[in-house]
Each structure stands twice: as structure tokens, then as C-alpha cells.
């Protein structure tokens, strides 16, 4: 079971997470009492990287219209910044006393804080990207809701013209997201629903067409063709709602659920 639910987050955090946990184990196993080297330079490099990240993070918050992102990002940025202060403190303390035990503790807390803060930051950002995809899915649902007012060929042409680009965009975004996920089951669920949506789209257009021509001919079978059209719309909506549900899943949710 993967720990990080996207390949991007995994590639960024997995290596450092392993190193930090190894550091914690080393610290717990042996307070070996050796003198620490001068860590001023690597700590300074971390501090500069934190400053850049914090700047870009607040820029992202300022330009975003996503209220949840605006709420979630600042605490994560503060966490990263506070962790970098712990590292700076530790580095200063070690210069004065290379054997300082409190300094070693601060190094561990600082490294852990950077990891946790960066993780929270990336998750907040990722969730906001997912919300963007969900908005696209919801706009498709909105288009599908107006299927029932399509009752002439002219409307049908306009309906298809409007629906096609937003459906294509949704398919592209969901496809990219699926490839980003580390969780195989979630990937398969998205692939299955997306395939279903693709297969149902021409069926929907055909069902609307049959309804429109049946109605215009004034012949029997209007009710049946309307029922068929509504059935296809419902199936499409169900699949899109399933996509929305799966997009919001993380491996963490599933662990909790189990």
C-alpha cells in the first residue's frame, strides 16, 4: 500500500522521509556522543530553499480563488518556516558546543518539521488541483441536466457543440490524474468510469436524436424514447459522480475505512 497517493508527491517526499526516519532511529538507538560537524552550510541551503518555497507558497495563495487552499496553505508554510528556525538554532548551538544534546534534538525536530510541513503543503496544493478537475466534472453534469429541454434538431446541434469540449476536457484531466495516482485500485476505478462515459456519450446523442425525431413526427413512442434518453443521462451522471468520488479518495481514506 503506497504511503503517498500521487507519483509527484511520492517522488518528492519518499527519499527524504526514509532518511528522516533512519535519522530518528539512529538518534533513538545511540546517543553516541560524537562531535557533530559544522552544519552551517547545509542548514543555510535548507533555509534558502525554505525561503523560496514560502515566497512561492504565499504567491500561490494570493492569486488563488480557492478558499480552502487559502486556508490550508499558510499553516503548512508556517510549519516549514518554524522548522527551518529550529535547524538554524541547532546549527548555532553546535558551533558553540559540537556535543550539544539539545541541538541534536532540534536537528531531528527541524528535519521532521520540514518533512511534515512540505507534505501538508503538497497535499493542500494537490487537493486544490483535484477541486479544479471536479469543477470540470460538475460542469459536464450541468450540461447533462439540460438534456431534457432539447426538443428540436437545432437544439440538439447546439447541445452537442457545447457538451463536446467540456467532455473532452474532463476526459483529458481525469486521464492525466489517473496516471498520477499511486493507488492501483483507484486508477482502475477511474479508467473504468471514464471508459463508460466515453462509450455512453454517442449513445446519449443517439437517444436524444431519437426522442427529438419521434416527437417531431408526432407519432407514438415519445414516452419510450424519453425514458430511454433519461436512462442514459442517469447512467452518465452516475459515472461522473463516481469519478468525482474516486478523485477525492486518498489511500489514507481507504486505510481508515478498512
Amino acid at each position: 500500500m503506497p504511503v503517498f497517493h500521487t507519483k509527484t508527491i511520492e517522488s518528492i517526499l519518499e527519499p527524504v522521509a526514509q532518511q528522516v526516519s533512519r535519522l530518528v532511529i539512529l538518534h533513538e538507538e545511540a546517543e553516541d556522543g560524537n562531535a557533530m560537524p559544522d552544519l552551517a552550510r547545509p542548514v543555510q541551503v535548507v533555509k534558502m530553499a525554505v525561503d523560496n518555497l514560502v515566497k512561492v507558497g504565499y504567491d500561490t495563495v494570493n492569486v488563488s480563488e480557492d478558499q480552502i487552499l487559502k486556508q490550508d496553505m499558510p499553516p503548512a508554510l508556517q510549519r516549514v518556516e518554524e522548522a527551518s528556525f529550529l535547524l538554524l538554532d541547532a546549527s548555532d548551538m553546535l558551533r558553540a558546543d559540537p556535543y550539544s544534546a539539545p541541538a541534536r534534538k532540534k536537528l531531528i525536530e527541524g528535519s521532521r518539521g520540514i518533512l511534515q510541513g512540505t507534505s501538508a503543503l503538497l497535499l493542500a496544493f494537490d487537493e486544490s488541483e483535484v477541486r479544479k478537475i471536479i469543477r470540470i466534472c460538475k460542469s459536464v453534469l450541468e450540461y447533462l441536466a439540460i438534456t431534457e429541454v432539447v426538443d428540436c434538431m437545432e437544439d440538439l446541434v447546439k447541445f452537442v457543440k457545447n457538451l463536446s469540449p467540456v467532455l473532452t476536457k474532463m476526459a483529458k484531466e481525469v486521464d492525466l490524474r489517473e496516471k498520477e495516482l499511486t493507488h492501483q485500485v483507484h486508477r482502475e476505478m477511474l479508467v473504468r468510469s471514464l471508459e463508460e462515459v466515453k462509450a455512453l456519450t454517442p449513445v446519449l446523442i443517439s437517444a436524444v436524436k431519437i426522442f427529438v425525431s419521434t416527437k417531431s413526427q408526432g407519432a407514438g413512442g415519445v414516452k419510450e424514447s424519453q425514458g430511454n434518453r433519461d436512462f442514459v443521462v442517469r447512467k452518465l451522471c452516475d459515472e461522473i459522480n463516481e469519478i468525482i468520488r474516486v478523485l477525492q479518495l486518498t489511500t489514507y481514506d481507504e486505510d481508515e475505512w478498512e
Binding site: V20, L23, A30, N34, P37, A49, L53, D59, T60, L115
Partner: peptide, 29 residues
Amino acid sequence: DAPEMVRQARVLAQATSQLVNAIKGQAEG
């Protein structure tokens, strides 16, 4: 084409790895 924030997070993770390596080098030695 990763957004700038993701790129900066990667840079920080790499810098932290190097720092932890420096600390660990001492702890393991």
C-alpha cells in the same frame, strides 16, 4: 510541466536530504 511550488518543494526536499545525510554521516560514524 510542474507548477513552481512543486518545483520549490522538490528543491527543499533535496536540500533536507543532504542535511540529513550530513547529520547521519556523523551519527553513523
